[in-house]
Design a protein around this nucleic acid. Structure first.
Lengths: 257, 257
DNA sequence: GAGTGGTCTAGACCACCTA
DNA sequence: AGGTGGTCTAGACCACTCC
């Protein structure tokens, strides 16, 4: 379109839109390099700053990634892992595999997790209420993990367990295949998972999460606050999952009650 | 902290972090105005551009909003509406209310929806497979709606129904209280909802969605692709919800099977 | 060394708000 | 009129990559 048009958007956003179009119609296929900022500035007759702003917009929208000293590239589509509502189904435990590991194997990746910390802590008020424990003492065990597919971090997982349940179990050890594999331990303690209660939200990551999950700019996270309820409807475990939204999704298949 | 520190982050990001802290510790309470960009530039001894970059970062993270010619303000916390897994529960139909309208009433807002279009269309391949209809003809009815709480758009909703079911019903009319209220019509046609199947993802909005939902910058959207299954496990309706992530969440309470 | 993206500066003009 | 945020320019320095 000619320059004299009545487009009221900032020039940088017009350029972003034009580049977006060029990417979507295949002019710049996934993986290809865009012209350099200096070239683009010449092409569009603007300062390099303006081009930079346009590219940042696209980067935030997840269309491109820029690499230091190399150039700006059109992003490849990411593989999507869907964490299902059946992720706690007994069938996985019988197979000795978690859905996460299954999915990794399917994609030829090796799944693993790292334990960041295992600690006995005081719960915050909401958590104390959710788990029906005292807010005044170190009444819960907290485990923090990061899950990897090959070397890419995928989930940041924090689990809280009432100390009365965790006490004297293997949950204080590092190499419990957590969290999908710990439910055997709960069953020994008389808690069979019969319902799940999940609160789901999405947001931009905190700077800390950006670090942990090696998030590129413009990628939101999905946060799931999961509570396990036993045969008596009593909660006995709360887990928070934080996952990058561009590589993950959720799936719920449930009866209407 | 002193300037001579070894902090390797860009100055703009350091400033963003400091402001973030000041907001979180209550130095700048919700609703208050921050110092102007020119003042901040003086305080931090940087160019105004650099302050602007810092503020944009916080804006993208949803902490602040800037208002033309007025100033930059700390954002108030948004009310969260949680769309539950029970949103299709028969109890709501008996009450003649949808969970959305209930939630609006609870918050003293008036909920309403607008019909954008009602059209008989050809499904795309995935949709055709999901609904088990022909991909070669105009085999589905598509309804597009926007939901409002007062004058704020909350959901963008698109529903697809096989033409064989929609035919001859009130679904072609505008004033069916869609989508939570249409299930009575399906029951008349012999489809009682017995399971739901939801795929959930999150992402940054498209420019079009930014318009429809009046999204501030940096707010992601949650997308739910919902399928209703009848008593025979047959799908008979697919609905896509797109909602702003800063005002909405999802809730699933389901048995482990 | 030449090219790249990342950032910052100093100054400018605009549109908008409050007065 | 004078303040505010939004944007752009032209030029600069840096750290990185590729050859």
């Amino acid at each position: 379109m000619p320059d004299g048009s009545g487009d009221k958007r900032p020039r940088s956003q017009q350029i972003a839109a034009e580049l977006r179009e060029a990417i979507e119609d295949g002019t710049h296929p996934p993986g290809s390099r865009l012209p350099s900022q200096r070239e683009l500035a010449l092409q569009y007759s603007v300062a390099r700053n303006t081009v930079d702003e346009a590219l940042k917009t696209l980067s935030r929208q997840g269309l491109i990634t820029s690499e230091w000293g190399r150039g700006v590239f059109v992003r490849e589509k990411k593989v999507l892992i869907r964490l299902g509502s059946d992720r706690y189904s007994p069938k996985y435990r019988e197979m000795g595999l978690s859905p996460f590991l299954l999915e990794c194997a399917k994609q030829g990746k090796s799944g693993r997790f790292e334990v960041l910390s295992i600690e006995r802590v005081r719960p915050n008020p909401e958590l104390a209420e959710q788990l029906k424990v005292s807010v005044k003492s170190k009444s819960v065990l907290r485990r923090e993990n990061v899950f990897y597919a090959d070397s890419d971090p995928v989930y940041r997982v924090t689990t809280w367990i009432p100390w009365s349940i965790a006490q004297g179990t293997g949950l204080l050890e590092e190499n419990v295949p957590h969290p999908f594999g710990i439910h055997g331990i709960f069953e020994d303690k008389g808690h069979v998972m019969s319902r799940i209660n999940d609160d789901i939200s999405a947001r931009m990551p905190t700077p800390e999460e950006t670090d942990y999950l090696k998030l590129p700019p413009g990628v939101p996270v999905i946060e799931v606050l999961h509570t396990s309820l036993d045969q008596d409807g009593e909660p006995y475990e709360v887990t928070r999952f934080v996952m990058r939204a561009d590589m993950n999704g959720l799936h719920y298949n449930a009866p209407v009650e």
